[in-house]
Design a protein around this nucleic acid. Structure first.
Length: 533
DNA sequence: TGGGGTCCT
DNA sequence: AGGACCC
């Protein structure tokens, strides 16, 4: 077996509740529930002592705990923001950070651990251990996992000190085991599991669908062939499993049941979609539909503006009333939109977008017949170009021009555009814990977001006129797409970053163009900035 | 049972 | 466009 990787799973404790308690510290001392419609989606640990459970109905929760304080958590904006702050912190340890929902992250710390291994730091196991450790694997994984317990503790300490959030961590040689182990001791604790305890850990779960990756549908299929417990799944005849699941799925599921998980930690880049939903008792007239969708659209436009990218398609989701318990049944329709519609200079773009949304709506609902809608959702997908969250993006004058200059982020790998150079990444570390990087320069407040478009072509040289040689010089000059007057006033360091950013973008363009023509990868600057390629 | 997301078919 | 999975 291969135990060469070291994975840490970080899970924020009752995440929404923690965010609300940080916003309003007086909530810390009371039983707190986060409410979405008629449901308590999560609660703080004070409330849990009353027996409040995830996804409990409000009346039931109130009966268990009449003093329960409820905060509405239907707008995820603040949770999403905090969530990304956590992920950004984690990315200082390794670029291999994968998000799962808003409150979980996987880290592949293999490289970092191997570096620490060479430094001969003393082996001190921190936190809980799952299972018995008398039978020790000799492949080296034991030492690696022990070092990782210290790293996990450091990471949790930083999340606490920087963001005032407590979390749990699971440490193992794969994602599956790390996640399951982390849930053993909650809250604000961590657990390591060694390979020899993998089977025991999996068997400690109650049912096959407690294994991440085995959901309701798979569980039902398993039942059909008489597999109801994890033990039965572990011992099932593979051929029989294949008859219902097919070869690939059968192998995967069987391996999961044995604690084997070969899946890698996939760096999560920018979201593939940004959407909003609103459930409701009943909507059956068109004006109400319009009002709801307008609300959703206005909120969504703000989110997309924050994101910085421009979407190319829009998707409408409708859930019709269904007396059967098929609550999950939704219908969607999508269409492409001209990205120019999102331009800030576009006069009443809301109305224009609403027109296409209502067109989608009419593809799902025949408004001449009675209807009964219980959910409306709107989402934007297929974004143009990766946004460049750098100082440069701020000074760039025109979104449309920007889109011409940029390329799609083809593999979703982090694009080396982090405003703070991730120092600890792959470079050898100095042995101490990763120090928080210097505070980001908050240009947001320094530079007005107002951009003027008119003089772009007069003011700037065409990028195509820039010679490749310019890109290789050490000297720093003003990128053609930045405001020269503003640029002059900036500190030298900032000027340098803007110029570096511009060079990177130029390099990307060059590679983009040539790779369209010939399949071979030219040895451009880009190769230094794009990994896994 | 909410309000999100991902990837595969 | 839907369905599986995840939180």
């Amino acid at each position: 077996m291969d135990h060469s990787r070291t994975i840490i799973h970080i899970d924020l404790d009752c995440f929404y509740a923690q965010v609300e308690m940080n916003k309003n510290p007086s909530l810390r001392t009371v039983p707190l529930g986060i409410q979405q419609k008629n449901i308590v989606v999560t609660s703080n640990y004070t409330a849990r002592e009353f027996g409040i459970k995830k996804c409990m109905l409000i009346p039931e929760a109130k009966k268990l705990c009449p003093s329960l304080v409820l905060v509405n958590g239907e707008d995820l904006h603040d949770y999403r923001q905090t969530s990304y702050k956590v992920t950004n912190l984690l990315q200082k340890y390794t670029p291999l950070v994968e998000r799962l929902g808003l409150d979980e992250n996987y880290l592949d710390v293999t490289t970092l651990i191997n570096e620490k291994l060479n430094q001969k730091s003393d082996l001190k196991l921190v936190g809980n251990v799952f299972g018995d450790t008398s039978d020790k694997c000799e492949c080296g994984c034991t030492e690696r996992l022990i070092i990782a317990t210290t790293v996990a503790q450091e990471i949790r300490d930083v999340i606490k000190s920087e963001l005032n959030l407590t979390s749990c961590a699971g440490i193992a040689h794969n994602k599956l085991l790390a996640k399951i182990a982390g849930a053993r001791h909650k809250p604000n604790q961590q657990t390591v599991v060694f390979p020899n305890s993998a089977l025991e850990l999996i068997l400690s779960l109650n049912a096959p669908n407690d294994i991440p990756g085995i959901g309701r549908a798979l569980f039902e299929q398993l039942k059909c062939i008489g597999v109801e417990t994890i033990e039965e799944l572990q011992n099932v005849d593979l051929k029989r499993l294949e008859t219902v699941l097919g070869q690939d799925k059968a192998k995967l599921v069987h391996e999961l049941s044995l604690g084997i998980d070969k899946s890698g930690v996939k760096p999560t880049g920018k979201p593939q979609s940004i959407g909003l939903e609103d459930s409701c008792r009943s909507i059956s007239v068109e004006t109400e539909v319009k009002i709801k969708l307008e609300q959703l659209l206005n909120r969504l436009l703000l989110l997309v503006e924050e994101d910085g990218r421009v979407p190319k398609t829009i998707k409408l989701t409708v859930r019709k009333f269904n007396k059967d318990n098929k609550m999950s049944h939704r219908e969607t329709r999508q269409c492409n939109v001209n990205p120019s519609i999102f331009s800030s200079s576009q006069p009443n773009k809301e109305a224009k977008i609403m027109t296409t949304i209502m067109h989608l709506f009419n593809r799902i609902i025949d408004v001449k017949k009675p209807y009964h809608i219980t959910l409306l959702g709107l989402s934007f997908t297929k974004f143009q170009e990766p946004p460049k969250n750098t100082l440069a993006s701020f000074l760039r004058k025109d979104l449309e021009v920007q889109s011409v200059l940029s390329i799609e982020n083809q593999n979703g790998v982090e694009d080396a555009e982090s405003p703070v150079p991730s120092t600890s990444k792959l470079a050898p570390t100095e042995g101490e814990s990763p120090t928080p990087s210097p505070k980001k320069l908050k240009l947001t407040n320094l530079v007005s977001k107002k951009r003027c478009f008119e003089d772009y072509y007069e003011d700037c040289e065409s990028p195509s006129k820039l010679k490749v040689a310019d890109l290789c010089l050490d000297s720093v000059s003003c990128p053609p797409d930045a405001d020269k007057e503003v640029f002059k006033e900036l500190p030298k360091e900032v000027q340098k970053e803007l110029w570096e950013d511009y060079k990177r973008r130029r390099a990307s363009e060059m590679n983009f163009c040539s790779s369209q023509v010939k399949k071979t990868k030219p040895n451009t600057l880009l190769n230094y900035f794009i990994r896994n390629n």
